[in-house]
Write a protein that binds this DNA or RNA. Structure first.
Lengths: 225, 225, 225, 225
DNA sequence: CATGAATGAGCTTTCATTCAT
DNA sequence: AATGAATGAAAGCTCATTCAT
């Protein structure tokens, strides 16, 4: 019937969607979420403005989809770490290191805040974004609990600890936004140490010195899709 | 005509400026930084749109002035704490408690990020905001150092610790943005404990139970302008 | 306080609103309802596009307001006729003559239809327009009833007769749309005769020949606001 | 290749064209003439957008073709009635009843008006639509004349009477547009009575009570293509 | 200083039409 | 013929900023 390969079309379409989302994220990372408009995103993607609307029904749709995929991807990565047989301290280290070294992550953080606090955004989208954020705390709380069981992570409500950890990471992420850097070093091992028990900290001799291709592991987790 | 009148005029003008800035902050807190426009701010201030422009030359001007004054005020408050003769842990507790309990503080955090990452904002303004942020780390680092000297705060570069602390507080502040709350408790004493030494944590028996009108103290510091 | 005359401002504002509505009607009459856009209306009114939005919140708002005022005005005129002490046949004649001789009335008829049948229009607006149309049938039915009582108007449900009469007038109105005229004369007295009883028609000798400044009377009724 | 195939192709093509036109009319009837776009029409027809352009060169082309065929079909039906050996009153009754009971006829009326009043439509198309409308008055005038000869239809210029009759029917048709109904009954016999002579009306005892499958006859006339 | 009407650039979105496959 | 992705010209609307009063 159709002179075109339907299956290939579908694949192309999915690839385009992916491409637009990537371009949107990059545009936000470059221009800031306020200045990033459809024209810029389309240009970044190498498409016409009108064509973008063949794949997404609105700008909000694009933005919330970018955030959605980021949150899902992040959630899977953290869940992956939670399920690994590895020192919980090391898990936190890997997560911190991986997240902070990925250039455009601050854009995700900004988007999450923007979507949650912007009055003109559809309430359902806001609610969904908040809910996914909350859900993503769970695997992190699991890691905290694992650490507490082993006596290497400080006591207290694991979910609250997870919340502090995530807030700290997000806060730091924002400081890493391009343009004007803050002249203070960020060292993942020091971040983790804040959550470690006295004994654990004392005993730890060169724990973090272990060589490992961190990025690879983190990336691997992210690709556990 | 008389010098008295001129002076009084100046005071009136300064009061107006203050009032507009307050209204701007409240509007942002209410509507989000994207939706807050001049008309809204003018309405909140009870002024006409045109009249607002008699006091500020642009919207960006208002926003960066709001941020500027917030940063200065915050800096003074922290410096005030740094100079006090008080247990450093208590200082951190007071600061955490005070900051997190002030409703519209998340708006400052959003503004700082918005100004720093928005491409259309004047680079000088961005640079200034970043610089002031960095400067405000110093008194906090002083408090950290005081704690380290007394052996109650964990070791490491005090400025880095201050940076982590501020990032954590800012990250938490964002989660407190109105609309959709995250169902996790935030307890200032637990935040401070993350930065305390083993010994300090162990010895601390009911340390934070001391009754005090925290808000009053924090407010007092903030009003040291 | 205000250096401007507030009352005068209000009057100006009302005049502007009126002016925009008139311009909108004229634009529709000139270009057709499909082609009439805000830019055209603004140009016709001698205003900038943006300024139009200081008086109306949307294009639909303008259109439905035009229709609303037209319907109200029409309703008042018909009610006025219904209350007059005058031969009902003459009332119908006046109404027919007056309505058909007003140039832009076809635009009202088109608008009513457009608003009622356009899926993208707010349902409340559609409902309101339909309701007002129905309400405006009543005074016309009163006139029919008056005629029936005097034995000069044919029998049957007065409201149904009114509905037929209005539909006929509206149908004719549409044929009068500018551009390409239909080469058939429209004679108000013949229209009225369709609704007259045999006796009434027979007895009528030169009834409609009576000289009168019809337009004046009709206009007068319209201005009974 | 063979002549047979060419002929069959032509038939297929004509069937497609017919199908698209029907789909266009249904889409307009469903969504209103403003909202009906090519994508909707193509979907209704079960074709791709691009393929529709293999049969029509523009949207206006489709619309004016829908109207053209409707007008031709209507003209043939009326001419058919004019040529029948039947009471003229009955002819009018059949026409009224048939036209008003066909669901999507209001769409034709709207289209006629839209095309005639829309400035962006090709003038030739507008002129043609108006001309055909005028031509279609003739057979109706013939029916009026037949009635006048028999003394059952009121006097006056037959063409003018036909014009009134058509306007009335069109006016009523618009009121029948879906969405918000006007709560007034429409009774075809009452419509016809408006055009009947006193004697005719008096003598008529149960004239319209004659049972007949009206729709069938009307349909039959319409299919005289 | 005070007002809010006025401007116009810029944004998001729609859609008839074209075109590579 | 058949497809739907691609285009680009508009449309509606918003809003920071200016300006006559």
């Amino acid at each position: 019937m159709s002179p075109r390969n339907v299956e290939k079309d579908m694949q192309m379409r999915e690839a385009r969607i992916e491409h637009i989302l990537t371009s949107a994220l990059e545009t936000i990372a470059k221009l800031g979420i306020d200045s990033a408009n459809i024209k810029d995103i389309a240009r970044e993607a190498g498409l016409s403005v009108g064509n973008v609307y063949n794949y997404f029904k609105s700008k909000d749709d694009i933005f919330s989809e970018v955030l959605l995929r980021g949150q899902i991807s992040y959630g899977k990565a953290i869940s992956g770490f939670a399920g690994l047989d590895m020192d919980p301290r090391e898990k936190l280290y890997e997560i911190s290191q991986g997240w902070l070294s990925t250039k455009s992550n601050w854009a995700f953080t900004i988007m999450l805040q923007s979507i949650r606090t912007n009055q003109s955004v559809n309430p359902e989208i806001k609610e969904a974004a908040t809910r996914r954020f909350t859900e993503n705390l769970r695997p992190l709380a699991d890691i905290m609990r694992q650490g507490q069981t082993k006596g290497v992570i400080v006591g207290g409500d694991p979910q609250q600890l997870a919340f502090y950890y995530v807030s700290l990471i997000q806060g730091l992420t924002l400081q890493l936004a391009p343009g004007y850097e803050i002249p203070v070093h960020i060292e993942p091992e020091n971040i983790v140490r804040l959550f470690m028990t006295p004994a654990s900290t004392a005993a730890e001799t060169g724990f973090f010195a272990v060589k490992r291709d961190h990025k690879l592991l983190y990336k691997k987790m992210f690709d556990m899709t």
